[in-house]
Each structure stands twice: as structure tokens, then as C-alpha cells.
């Protein structure tokens, strides 16, 4: 291997690693706050990419019907709960927020000239009909069993994954989707050619990660999510409800997943089932961080990206095997070096 090949592999590895890093952060967040291992994370990547492909081709994102349907379902479930508590006064707000809002958005978007819309606005439309699925899925699938064991939550998570996979095939079909690059072309760096899109990916991933860090360090809602992860009882006593925290981090996870999909759609063809493997690689990164440390998870994800690109060069048939085998030494190392310490001694 010469230097220019090595550079190409590094470029490739870092680009993919940046996406895995985003996903691994979302996985750590969801697990720390709700104890859910978020297998459907990858489906949000595929939904984001394919919705973007639909919008840029001038079609409405097909997932909007799913958002509307789930919105109505959430409104029903919330209304029944409110009536049981004898709080009928909350009904109009519940119906407006959950069911009426998606329908209004749908009607509004119908009259937009999608195909000629500016690129950032197309992204906004694509996100508008994917991201709400996050909190909706939390409300319908996870909130009713929020106190259950990690294993049960994992089983629900796997079930949601398969449902979303099937719905993905139904909504987007078996053909893959690809979108135009954010900006075409590239430039030569030494002996290697760098596409502008890879810069966009790494740049936007870095901005999103910085944004998440700011959110967790400086906003009261970010701090509330961290507090819930540290001490659930304490957070509850401060009026930080588990439902709110769960909804919030599923929204963030959906946003991160869908945006990752939009980022990679110009450089790779995304199919309805592409997301799963991408999400799993983010999961390997998250495991490096012990599903608890954000910086370690991000670093682990970059490592996964590099390992993947180098092994696709040296042993392309074993690319996935090598990447997923990484889990074993990592788990060994973690179990030998970490002791479980209680957060507080009493």
C-alpha cells in the first residue's frame, strides 16, 4: 500500500466513522436515559435518506402517512389516559398537538413546489416527516413498559426494528435511493482527491456533536436528561418525568439518525434495509464507550470506521466480520478494567 491509498482509506474511514459517531452518541443517550438499546436507530437512517430522495425527486415523503397514523394513535392513547384521570379539559390540547398538527403539516407541504425548493428546505421537509416518529414510537411502544427490565425493553426494541423494516419496504419499495450531493466536485489534496460531500459529512457531524455537547452542558433540558441518567429517583423527585425524558431523547435519536441518512445519501445508495448495519456499527462504537461515555463512544465509532475501510482493502470479504469481532476484545478489556461502582454510597 502506498501513501495515497492509505490516505483514501483514512478519508473513507473518517467519513463513515463520523456517521457511526453520531449514531453511537444517540444510542448512548437513549440507553442512559431510558435503558432501551435502540436497535431501530438504523431504520431512521434509511428513512431519512429515502425521504430525502423522495423530496428531491419532487414527491412527498411517504412516511408522512405513518406520522399522521401514529399521531392519531398517540392522541387516542393519551385521551384515554386523560379521561381515566378525570382530566377531560386536556383533551383539546392532546388532539391538537398529536393528531391535528401532523395533518396540518401534511396539508401545508402538499402545496410546496418540492422539486425546486432550496436544498436546506428539502432537508427540513424530509426531517419533518421522519423525526416525529421518534417520540411517537416512544409513547406507543416504550412508555407503557418504561419500568420493565432491560431485556424486555430490548425485545420490544427488536420488534420495533422489524416493524419499521417492513414499513420501510412498504413505503419506499425495494429500490434504493440516492440524492444529489450538497455541493458537487472536490479538490486535490496532495495525490488524493477529496469530494466536497465528505467534507460536508465530517463538518456537519462535528457541528451536530458540538451542538449535542452544548445542549447537555448548558440547557436545563439537557441537564435534566443527564440527571435522569445519573439518578432516576432524584430526577423524578425534581419533577423531571420519565415520560418527558424518554420522549426528548427519542426525538434527539430520531433527528440524529434521519440527519445521518440525509448526509450519506449522496455518496451511497441507501435501501430500506441499509440502516440496520450502519446502526449496528454505531452500536459497536457505543460499546467501546461502555454505553455510558460519550467521548469514548465517538472515538470508538471513528475506530470502527477506520477498521472497516482498512479491512475492506485488505480482506474485503471479511469486512463486516472484522468490524463486529472488535466487540469481543473490547468487552474483554472493559470487563477487566471497569469495576461497577455505585453512584452514591449511603
Amino acid at each position: 500500500m502506498n501513501a495515497s491509498v492509505a490516505l483514501i482509506l483514512v478519508q473513507d474511514g473518517v467519513t463513515n466513522g463520523a456517521i457511526y459517531a453520531l449514531l453511537s452518541l444517540a444510542l448512548v443517550l437513549v440507553f442512559a436515559v431510558t435503558r432501551v438499546i435502540f436497535i431501530p436507530q438504523g431504520e431512521f437512517v434509511a428513512y431519512g435518506a429515502l425521504s430525502m430522495a423522495a423530496v428531491s425527486a419532487g414527491f412527498l415523503p411517504p412516511t408522512m402517512w405513518l406520522v399522521v397514523t401514529l399521531g392519531i394513535a398517540v392522541a387516542l392513547v393519551e385521551s384515554v389516559a386523560a379521561l381515566r384521570e378525570g382530566a377531560a379539559a386536556r383533551l383539546p390540547m392532546i388532539i391538537l398537538k398529536n393528531a391535528a398538527l401532523p395533518i396540518l403539516a401534511l396539508v401545508a407541504v402538499r402545496y410546496l413546489p418540492l422539486k425546486t425548493l432550496a436544498y436546506p428546505l428539502q432537508i427540513a421537509v424530509a426531517l419533518l416527516f421522519v423525526v416525529p416518529l421518534g417520540p411517537q414510537i416512544y409513547r406507543l411502544a416504550f412508555q407503557p413498559v418504561a419500568e420493565a427490565t432491560v431485556l424486555l425493553l430490548l425485545i420490544v426494541s427488536v420488534a420495533v426494528h422489524f416493524v419499521l423494516l417492513g414499513l420501510g419496504l412498504y413505503f419506499f419499495g425495494a429500490e434504493g435511493g440516492r440524492t444529489p450531493a450538497f455541493s458537487d466536485g472536490g479538490f486535490n489534496l496532495g495525490s488524493s482527491y477529496i469530494q466536497f460531500q465528505t467534507l460536508w459529512i465530517v463538518g456537519i457531524a462535528a457541528v451536530l456533536i458540538a451542538g449535542l455537547a452544548l445542549f447537555f452542558e448548558h440547557s436545563i433540558y439537557g441537564k435534566a436528561l443527564r440527571a435522569t441518567a445519573i439518578n432516576r429517583t432524584g430526577a423524578r423527585l425534581m419533577g423531571i418525568s420519565a415520560d418527558l425524558a424518554g420522549k426528548l431523547c427519542f426525538t434527539l435519536a430520531a433527528l440524529v439518525g434521519a440527519f445521518s441518512g440525509i448526509l450519506i445519501a449522496p455518496i451511497t445508495t441507501v435501501y430500506y434495509d441499509t440502516g440496520f448495519l450502519i446502526g449496528l456499527k454505531g452500536f459497536v462504537g457505543a460499546i467501546v464507550g461502555g454505553l455510558a461515555s460519550y467521548p469514548l463512544a465517538a472515538a470508538g465509532a471513528i475506530l470502527v470506521g477506520l477498521l472497516e475501510s482498512y479491512s475492506s482493502f485488505y480482506a474485503s470479504a471479511y469486512k463486516e466480520v472484522i468490524v463486529f469481532t472488535l466487540i469481543i476484545p473490547v468487552l474483554l478489556w472493559r470487563s477487566l478494567t471497569t469495576h461497577h461502582v455505585d453512584d452514591e454510597e449511603h
Binding site: 436545563i220 441537564k223 435534566a224 443527564r226 440527571a227 445519573i230 439518578n231 429517583t233 432524584g234 430526577a235 423527585l237 425534581m238 419533577g239 423531571i240 453512584d343 452514591e344 449511603h346
Partner: peptide, 29 residues
């Protein structure tokens, strides 16, 4: 809690790895 009924539990239930100021701020959540 929103109606002003607040419990200080026996085990304190603080947010151990967060600063004193952040713990206080979350009291106002």
C-alpha cells in the same frame, strides 16, 4: 412537584457527577 409538594428523601438522591450549581438548577425544573 409543580404544585409545590417537594420531598427531600432520606438517601438525598443527588446527581453525583454533576456540579452543585447544576443540582440546584434542576431543583427548579
Amino acid at each position: 412537584v409543580g404544585r409545590g409538594l417537594v420531598l427531600v428523601p432520606e438517601k438525598r438522591e443527588l446527581f453525583g457527577s454533576m456540579s452543585v450549581a447544576d443540582n440546584l438548577l434542576l431543583g427548579a425544573f
